[in-house]
């Protein structure tokens, strides 16, 4: 938690330094992407919406592929419970 806040603070500081120059150089897409990624990362680290992001980014991998994995394990005879 505290580590997360410290890292989020670092990211925010970097964003304050770097993002304005991106918009100034009219690299707008990049600037928006920068802020979006920085915000997503920081908020998750502080503890908000962690579950949400982990679902959006990763949990669907389990949900989508676990049944196939289980089926494969069954096929190979190496178990594969739950």
């Amino acid at each position: 938690m505290w580590v997360g806040i410290a890292v989020a603070a670092l990211v925010a500081a970097a964003a304050v330094i770097e993002a304005p120059s991106l918009f100034r150089e009219s690299a707008k897409t990049e600037g928006i992407l920068y802020l979006a990624l920085a915000a997503a990362g920081s908020f998750t680290l502080i503890g908000y919406t962690g579950k949400f992001y982990s679902f959006v980014f990763l949990r669907w991998v389990d949900i989508a592929f676990l049944p196939i994995g289980n089926w494969v394990a069954h096929l190979f005879g190496t178990g594969g419970a739950s």
């Binding site: 997503a40 990362g41 920081s42 998750t44 680290l45 982990s54």
Partner: peptide, 17 residues
């Protein structure tokens, strides 16, 4: 340019893996 936010997102993903 994106090295800091991408690192932050990676860290967040690793923490909530």
């Amino acid at each position: 340019t994106l090295s800091v936010p991408v690192a932050a997102v990676t860290l967040a993903l690793a923490a909530n893996f």
